[in-house]
Write a protein that binds this DNA or RNA. Structure first.
Lengths: 268, 268
DNA sequence: CCTTGACTTTCCCCCTACTGGAACCTGTAT
DNA sequence: ATACAGGTTCCAGTAGGGGGAAAGTCAAGG
């Protein structure tokens, strides 16, 4: 039986942490004096604490670790969690690699004396009149990460109903606010046939800019268009939409082309 | 002038987050109606929000980002932070690589049917009598991460005073509790000369085990020795110490050898 | 037996970067 | 005039503890 202090020393964990683990039920002392409330640990608990430490080093949450300790008997759960963690970590490392490339570019830009946001100057905004189209569409309040799912659903419908696509897919943003959990988005594809489940998409005067590269550059394009509108004296006159000229599944990330349109009206 | 909702849409940030940034002073709306308290943003603030987003993607804290925005004029600060972040991320990626190797080993162990903690069985504990020595020492409440600094300091003193080292460096843990910020540690090296600044290190009956590999295996060794002590009926009788047989600067991590000693006494 | 000092207890607040919800107020379109 | 969408503030909660206060407990020495 070890007091919390001596246990903490052997286990290389602070007493604070041990009390916290007791509180959340991750590691209960094997005996608690009912008079004094003092916690006492057994040497056999050191093995548990070592396992906790190892899993923590693998970035598991205490909740996941608790589940592993619960089902300590079957290693199947642990095996599954480890395999999952390995896969996640690998993709995390890959995203860090991208990030390092980006930081490197920013650093060399800064060293050449240009501003870190100077890439915005390469985005050029033009005024255009869009043509009216017939579109097949899904409009729903969706979680932004389910976007691809809805898009696939729409293309399935086009195939089922034997419609003839006339252009690249579009998303139209009806919401007035950014709410990633439940965003009012309409996903659409222009088609030849004007049947049930399609609608008219009227032409409009729009400010337009094209993004080349990954989708996380989209906010920059919106920012640039809004700045341009302000300068030129236009105001927003309808729901913004984006046209995806390339298929992200088939295109290297840096080569994606996306057009951003904001319907505009000249200020009085 | 954009309401918080429309600004949130263009910037791809929730209104919740914008209010939070206002509260912490990271991004103040350019105008606040004093009657209604409504926040209004300017399109030129979109650029700031884009910069914030980019730095957040680089894992900067909002505090660091605020500092960058403060000194937006001199890119020197930003350059320094970016270079630092790059270096940190590179070492982070390196540690993830180690972690992936470890996980891989654990997975194949589990698939072979052995327990994830079975490596503990390879640690063998023996009873030994240590010989008395004369040691030169530094004893201080130190932060565990300054350990190497103190060790170097000690070797400088040995060189200055022309002492004759007789063995590998030792650390002696006097604290009863694990307190990483301020840990009462004595760093020592056995020497031939018994001069000022040295002391006697008496021999003692000890339970001893040897660790082969990185230092993060140390807690396992302590755990194993404590279990052994419990089984064999010994109790702790003094301050534990570790002997570093190999120099970690010259040894591949997996080949490091460390001896762990716990002074013991037979229970009555 | 008493004291001292080290150890332990509970309790509360603090950290980051927000999210969710309640209660209430405002702006705008009909 | 009336909805109702959009805005406001405030409070609570997240993960994994750290810091510190006030008070109770343990072991050793005198």
């Amino acid at each position: 039986m070890l007091s919390i202090g001596s246990f903490s020393k052997v286990a290389n964990i602070t007493t604070k942490t041990l009390r916290y683990y007791d509180e959340i039920g991750l590691l209960k002392p094997c005996y608690v004096d009912s008079d004094s409330g003092y916690r006492y640990y057994d040497v056999t608990q050191l093995e548990t604490v070592l396992l906790i430490g190892r899993l923590k080093a693998y970035d598991f949450s205490l909740d996941e670790i608790a589940r592993v300790l619960q089902g300590r008997a079957d290693s199947a759960l642990l095996l599954e969690l480890l395999a999952d963690k390995k896969a996640r970590t690998e993709s995390l490392v890959a995203s860090y690699a991208d990030m390092l490339i980006q930081i490197g570019e920013d650093i060399s830009n800064l060293e050449r004396g240009s501003d870190i946001m100077s890439y915005l100057n390469d985005i050029s905004v033009k005024l255009t009149e869009t043509k009216p189209m017939t579109i097949v569409f899904i409009r729903e309040k969706m979680n932004v990460k389910d976007y691809g799912k809805y898009m696939r659903g729409l293309y399935e419908r086009i195939a089922e109903e034997k419609l003839t696509p006339l252009g690249a897919p579009i998303s139209i943003y009806h919401s007035e606010e950014f709410t990633p959990e439940s965003y009012d988005v309409e996903i659409a594809v222009p088609v030849k046939e004007a049947v049930k489940g399609t609608r008219d998409f009227p032409g409009a005067l729009c400010a337009k800019a094209t993004l080349k590269g990954a989708y996380d550059g989209i906010p920059s394009v919106y920012a640039k268009i809004r700045e341009w509108m302000e300068q030129e004296g236009y105001t927003i006159a309808g729901a913004c939409f984006e046209v995806y000229l390339t298929n992200p599944a088939e295109t290297p990330e840096g080569e994606n082309l996306t057009e951003v349109y904001i319907p505009v009206r000249k200020l009085a």
